[in-house]
C-alpha cells in the first residue's frame, strides 16, 4: 500500500535541438567585388527545436571528398552561431582568391558537426562554390521572379552591365542572417529590373531577328524574356 503511494516524477518533454542547412549550395563570384582578395560568406542554418535566451555555437568542417576541389589554403571556416531568441543562425566561411579561383569554379563540401547543444539534422551538407568568373548567384531563386528562371552567364552579364552594378544583393531569406551582404530592398530590385527590361527592349529593337539569347547552360539558344512582375 505504501509502495503504491510512492511519488513518481512526471515525464516532461525534453527538447533535442538541432540545426540544418537551408541551402544545398552557396555560390559566390569575385566579379561582385573585383578588387577583393577575400570574401566572408555566411551559410544559413535553421534551428529545429526551442529558442534560447543565449547564443549557441556550432561547428562545420570541410569534407575532402571528390566534390571538393580546394585545399584549406584558400578558405577558412569560422564557428557558427545561432543567436539568442532566434530560429536562424549562420556560419562564416572566408573564401580566398588565387589564379585557380580566377580562372575556374572551385568547390568545397562542408558538413555540419554541430555542438553539445545543437545536433546536425536533415540537410547536413552544403557545397560552396566560388570563382572569379560570372556564375549563377546564390540568390537567383529570388532574382528569377524579375529576370526569369532561365539563367546563362551572358544574360547575367547583360543584367549587371545594364543595371550598372556588380551584384543584385536581394534575398528575402539570406537577408535574415546576413543583412549586411543582402541589403537590397524589393523596391530597389524592381527598379533595377525595369532598367534592365528597358535595355533589353532597346537591344532587341536594334537587333531584329537576332534578339538576345541565352549563351550557355540549360537554356542555351533560347531568347531571353523577362516575366511580368
Amino acid at each position: 500500500m505504501f509502495s503504491a503511494c510512492q511519488k513518481e516524477e512526471i515525464m516532461l518533454y525534453e527538447d533535442d535541438p538541432g540545426i540544418y542547412f537551408t541551402l544545398p549550395t552557396y555560390s559566390y563570384s569575385f566579379t561582385e567585388n573585383a578588387g577583393a582578395q577575400t570574401k566572408t560568406i555566411y551559410l544559413p542554418v535553421k534551428l529545429s527545436g526551442s529558442i534560447k535566451d543565449y547564443d549557441r555555437v556550432f561547428d562545420i568542417e570541410a569534407v575532402y571528398d571528390d566534390k571538393t576541389t580546394v585545399t584549406n589554403a584558400i578558405f577558412e571556416i569560422k564557428q557558427g552561431v545561432v543567436p539568442k531568441n532566434s530560429f536562424d543562425g549562420s556560419v562564416a566561411v572566408v573564401l580566398k582568391r588565387n589564379t585557380t579561383v580566377d580562372t575556374s569554379i572551385v568547390n568545397l563540401n562542408v558538413k555540419l558537426i554541430g555542438s553539445n547543444e545543437l545536433k546536425p539534422q536533415m540537410a547536413k551538407t552544403l557545397q560552396v562554390s566560388w570563382t572569379g568568373k560570372i556564375i549563377q548567384p546564390v540568390n537567383w531563386n529570388w532574382l528569377r521572379y524579375y529576370f526569369g528562371t532561365p539563367f546563362s552567364t551572358g544574360w547575367y552579364t547583360f543584367i549587371l552591365r545594364e543595371a550598372g552594378v556588380s551584384s543584385l544583393p536581394y534575398s528575402g531569406t539570406l537577408s535574415k542572417t546576413d543583412p549586411v551582404t543582402w541589403w537590397m530592398s524589393s523596391g530597389q530590385l524592381i527598379a533595377y529590373a525595369l532598367k534592365v527590361k528597358e535595355a533589353l527592349i532597346k537591344y532587341n529593337a536594334l537587333h531584329p531577328g537576332d534578339e538576345l539569347k541565352h549563351n550557355d547552360g540549360t537554356y542555351v539558344g533560347q531568347i531571353v524574356t523577362m516575366p511580368a512582375f
Binding site: 523596391g187 525595369l194 528597358e198 527592349i201
Partner: peptide, 11 residues
C-alpha cells in the same frame, strides 16, 4: 521615392 520610369514594350 519614385520608382523607375514606366516602360512601354517595343517602342
Amino acid at each position: 521615392l519614385y520608382g523607375y520610369t514606366y516602360l512601354f514594350d517595343q517602342t
